[in-house]
Design a protein around this nucleic acid. Structure first.
Lengths: 237, 237
DNA sequence: CATGGACATCTGCCATAGCAGTTGGCAGCC
DNA sequence: GGCTGCCAACTGCTATGGCAGATGTCCATG
């Protein structure tokens, strides 16, 4: 992340590398700037000034801000301004629970539509997860985990689901900060959960895949500190 | 009820009906046109021609189309055009299952945050539902049902959830068409489900409220024909 | 008749300019 | 000093124009 490395709140101009639209690039840049910590909550954002900072017009910036508002990351009051939304622990927890539910539905849909090629890819991903777990290599684990979920999302073929989950996963890096160094020894637990999900997918059992995926995401959120209590049912035995 | 009815000397805020932005109005108009059946699937939409039809500029139309693409209702191919997305029964079913999951999360969150005033409102809504069920009055039932869910959504206080559910509920009128005249006699069943959900909310039992809400939405989708099979568990005792 | 290439025309995308509503502050009055 | 009203400087919002890329047609060429 060398390009966007500037003073706090300052956004570097957009590089003209890709063929993506300016609005799309501005959207990704801004979302990254928010979840990374620059552009803190409550910060005022002006279409014009931000446009000059990015070296583009105000129109693509406006589109990016509207998409960010759809994601809940900014709030714009008509004729008054746009500010970065406050994201307290409570709201992060709610978004986590929403994401857990959606990941569950995605797993259920994937269990019905997955083809052989995707199932084979899971074998490779699980192998890398095993290696990363044994070596306690967080880089490998994060990358494999990303592919794991992305593969499931893609397998659903549902654009709405993919878009929603992409928006929600962006919040991950916001709530994970405090627990970055912890992750004591529940890495094997996460591995077993992933294996269990893949097993359910192979059996083409939507209900089981959904239950396991949802439980996995919820537990992951708990160990990462964004979801404080295990929301256990009221029957403790 | 007079809108400006406040304390002596107090002036009520202005209603914000027609102060909506052109982009927002174009978005709602287009979404309505799609779910109502005009603008059928595959129809090409041009920013410019649509702008002249609406009597506005191309920029607000563009914003509306982008939001519709986020909702999955249109697909725009860069430099080639924007077309109304195909919404087959399979996709409508998927969106229904997504919505069922999100409504469940909304019910769970509402069970934790609901205040006394909202709980009192549920009593009134349930009474109207009872009356509508006895009279088999679909207009009353639809309106009460709308308020029922909207109240739960609002109680969560989660903007992301509310936006997503608002987008998903728009598809309802797309899939319900064939079953409009049927609705044989499961109206009492829907009433009991609503009552059960409210009971769970009163007990502040998030897990129970979620399970009941999700089951209610899924069954509603089945009787409306958008979700064909009852996705029963694989143990048919 | 079949085929290929140039041109008119369409598309989404972006830049510029100006509008109307909001805010903050400063002068002027009580 | 405290309050009122005005003005300049913002803000988001919209209109207009023009850009490059994609499409379809038509004529020249084999």
């Amino acid at each position: 992340m060398a390009a966007a490395e500037t003073a706090r709140g300052r956004i570097a101009p957009l590089a003209e590398e890709d063929t993506l639209s300016l609005g799309e690039r501005a959207y990704r840049r801004l979302r990254e700037s928010i979840v990374q910590g620059m552009l803190p909550a409550g910060r005022k954002i002006s279409e014009r000034s931000l446009a000059t900072q990015l070296g583009i017009s105000a129109q693509p910036v406006r589109e990016a801000l509207q998409r960010l508002e759809q994601d809940g990351m900014v709030i714009t009051l008509p004729r008054r301004g746009t500010v970065v939304a406050e994201m307290g622990p409570a709201q992060l927890g709610e978004l986590g629970r929403i994401r857990a539910a959606l990941e569950g539905v995605a797993a259920a849909l994937a269990a019905e539509r997955l083809d052989a090629a995707a199932l084979a890819t899971f074998t490779s991903i699980l192998a890398r997860m095993k290696a990363g777990t044994d070596a306690a290599d967080h880089d490998i684990l994060d990358e494999a985990n990303e592919e794991f979920h992305a593969l499931i999302h893609r397998a659903t073929g549902n654009l709405f689901l993919m878009r929603s989950l992409a928006s929600l996963r962006a919040y991950d890096h916001l709530g994970r900060r405090r627990a970055v160094g912890s992750t004591p020894r529940d890495l094997p637990k996460a591995l077993r959960e992933h294996q269990g999900i893949v097993a359910a997918l192979r059996r083409r059992d939507p209900a089981l895949a959904e239950a396991r995926m949802r439980a996995h995401v919820l537990r992951s959120l708990v160990t990462n500190g964004v979801l404080s209590p295990p929301p256990r049912g009221k029957r403790p035995p």
